[in-house]
Amino acid sequence: MATLAHYEAKIDTRRRNIFGYILFCLGTLALLLLDLATSGKGGIGNYIGVCVLVSSFGVADAHVQGGMVGDLSFMCPEFMQSFLAGLAAAGALTSALRLITKAAFDKSDDGLRKGAMLFLAISTFLEFLCILLYAFYFPRLPIVKYYRTKAASEGSKTVSADLAAAGIQTQESVIAGAKDSENLSHKQLFLQNIDYAIALFLIYVVTLSIIPGFLYENTGTHNMGTWYPIVLIGMYNVWDLISRYIPLVKKIKLESRKGLMLATISRLLLIPCFFFTAKYGDKGWMILLTSFLGLTNGYLTVCVLTSAPKGYKGPEQNALGNLLVLCLLGGIFSGVALGWLWLIGSNQKFFG
């Protein structure tokens, strides 16, 4: 993602996003085929294969998420909100499929594997639809053509292929007329928006340090058995989805930069809250706390990513979108790494 963010102005956004969607689709299909070919057996070779395929999802995510956020940054904020809500909807759908497959195969032999295979098959189909929709339908929407034409007139070179796919030929003289020197550099954009960058980083550090690791390892005693972490993850995803629509109501959308930073920093208190709730609270409080985690995660993400690009030209908005996604993914990586700290002092083993 760092490389893509650095060279975003020279990368064809259309090819970048299509490559990412294709990689998602092929990677998911390959996981399914690997399981079928090996009959679900383990082994070091199969494990390495799974690791390679999972790594490809990281590459695909960097291409798609950075490319799409950069692309949507110079369009209307509602487009960005819809895309971010779509990401949360994918999480909610994943939880729903997990609940369905667990209910369907929980009592059957090899039920977990059957559920995973059904999930991978559905995911492959949906990802294939994403390729078709992005490649053939999205660029032909009138409002998308309008914003991309506007971005091209401001000097953006990343939209040329998308405009060509929509039947619009850009004049090189028009694009060349907007000099690169008129646009802010990546460093200038980052420094001007460092509070947004830190906010996104911290949002996902907190979230991913708790989900999914803590919810699967340290949720205390309960009578829901193996359903408990699945329900918790489901509640998080549902409220994450709902909260991403809240900023559509202008009166309750948080746009103050100081307010966003204060709200983001205050989420750090959720970490001790989860620790003490798992130790002393019951499952009702844990479900409530997990729902609040999802609520704040989605709401703040949309507020930051729809507020930051305002006031910049198309090429600058695209660059800023990529930089913010870089910080977001950095937060995800750091949060996942910090998630291992929950195992310290617990009865769980790191391996085996």
Rank of each mutant, 00 (worst) to 15 (best):
Q188I: 07
G70V: 12
L120Y: 13
L34K: 12
A197W: 07
E182V: 04
G321D: 07
D71Q: 13
R15K: 14
L260H: 06
G345Q: 06
P212K: 06
L324F: 02
Q81S: 14
L93D: 00
L254V: 15
G225N: 15
L33V: 15
D71K: 10
C51K: 08
G20C: 11
V159P: 04
T13S: 13
Y245S: 09
L293R: 11
I246T: 12
S266L: 08
L328F: 05
E127H: 14
S108L: 13
T158R: 05
F119E: 10
L295T: 14
A30E: 03
S56R: 00
G335I: 00
Y204F: 10
A116I: 14
A103E: 11
L300Y: 00
V174Y: 01
S185V: 11
L320A: 09
D110F: 11
F83G: 04
I230L: 15
S243M: 14
L141V: 07
Q348C: 02
D282K: 10
Y47V: 14
H6M: 02
L260N: 06
A164Y: 06
K310D: 06
R14V: 08
F276D: 00
G220I: 13
F125N: 04
T221I: 15
F214R: 08
F128W: 06
L326M: 08
L320M: 13
L36G: 06
E78P: 05
G40H: 09
V238Q: 04
A116Y: 08
G67M: 07
W342N: 01
S55R: 02
S123D: 12
H6P: 01
Y312I: 02
L4N: 01
F79H: 06
L215M: 12
V59C: 08
S334D: 01
A88C: 08
S55T: 13
Y137D: 05
S307T: 14
L26V: 15
S108H: 07
T101P: 11
V205A: 05
K187Q: 10
L84M: 13
D61K: 08
E127Y: 15
L270I: 01
H63K: 03
V159A: 10
C130H: 12
